[in-house]
């Protein structure tokens, strides 16, 4: 009475390969269209049209690398790249350090662990627009943090990262870290929980201190978790857009512009599509540069399934 037969689709004598699993193929049409038309087609289309002089409407007037020359000659783009560099490197390091430290604290078998975790993670549920507006208000020089500290008697206290072109990027960083560290903490915590209890026992037997055990033993063991976190943080940094629009609007002046905002301004406001396409192609290139080493590390050797 046991069921021992193979499902019919494995039978070799079917009339045509095309009609095998026909219903599964029909049901997968939305997926196939998304993959081919939007992801492959759309990306290729943008790259191809970045070599045209399209302005209000896309047109095939080939201009070679003109758009790219203009892009790299534009102050606004250079500022955007610099800002992304500063924001990105700070956010990368601080998110990893804070995320790991918080996870390590929560992993010390403390009480109220889930309460702390809930508090650290809730900003992640919010929109970047909400985050940006909340911090815009807290950092408001007239009424916010600066005026409160001055009210305590420290009259010369200056903390005005919303209106100061030199520090505005750190104002964004405070908000970005507030929103993003909870996620990394959660991933790190899951990684720490996956580490064998015996490692800790062995370290204690050998008389290695807690902090040293983390640095010398645990962190090297968590390499895959760190790499996943790095990829997540990096792809989040490149997408940085909503936060800037809400918190600073790219200002004061151009001092907090970022590449994603540059693309959208040129495509949808300045009616200069070719410039927008070239800038977005550069964004794509930066992702490819990050992604290829990671894919190599992650799937190196075995085939990606």
């Amino acid at each position: 009475m046991t069921v021992a037969s193979d499902p019919p689709e494995h039978a070799p004598k079917r009339p045509s390969r095309l009609f095998k699993n026909l219903m599964a193929k029909i049901a997968s049409i939305p997926m196939i269209l998304t993959a081919l038309v939007v992801f492959v087609g759309g990306t290729a289309w943008t790259v191809v049209y970045s070599f045209t002089g399209s302005r209000m409407l896309p047109k095939t007037k080939w201009v070679g690398f003109d758009q790219y020359e203009r892009l790299w000659g534009s102050d606004r783009w250079i500022i955007s790249i610099k800002n992304l560099g500063i924001y990105g490197s700070c956010a990368m390091i601080l998110t990893l350090v804070i995320g790991f430290s918080l996870a390590a604290c929560l992993d010390r078998k403390i009480r109220f662990e889930s309460a702390f975790r809930t508090i650290f993670l809730y900003p992640f549920a919010l929109s970047f627009v909400v985050t940006g507006l909340a911090w815009q208000w807290i950092l408001n020089p007239e009424f916010g943090l600066q005026s409160v500290v001055r009210g305590w008697g420290w009259e010369s206290f200056v903390f005005n990262p919303i209106n100061d072109p030199d520090t505005v990027i750190f104002g964004l960083l405070i908000a970005g870290l507030w929103q993003g560290t909870g996620l990394i903490m959660c991933i790190m915590l899951a990684g720490l929980r996956g580490i064998d209890e015996d490692i800790w026992k062995a370290a204690r037997v050998d008389g290695i201190g807690t902090v040293k055990t983390y640095v010398v033993v645990i962190i090297p063991m968590m390499r895959p978790v760190f790499i996943t976190s790095l990829v997540l943080i990096a792809s989040g940094i490149i997408k940085l857009y909503d936060l800037v629009v809400a918190q600073t609007g790219g200002g004061p002046g151009l001092s907090s512009e970022v590449p994603a905002k540059y693309v959208i301004e040129f495509m949808f406001r300045a009616q200069n599509l070719g410039q927008g396409f070239a800038a977005s192609t550069m964004m794509l290139c930066s992702v490819v540069i990050i992604l290829i080493p990671w894919a190599y590390l992650e799937f190196g050797g075995r085939k990606n399934g």
Binding site: S28, M31, I32, T34, A35, L36, V38, F39, V40, G41, G42, T43, W45, T46, V47, Y49, P58, S235, I238, K239, A260, V263, I264, M267, L273, G276, F277, A279, S280, T281, M283, L284, V287, L291, N304, G305
Partner: peptide, 19 residues
Amino acid sequence: FFTILIIGAFIPYQTMLYP
């Protein structure tokens, strides 16, 4: 198709906005 889909998750949205 699935691999393309997953890679697509990493492509910046800006590249696909106009198409």
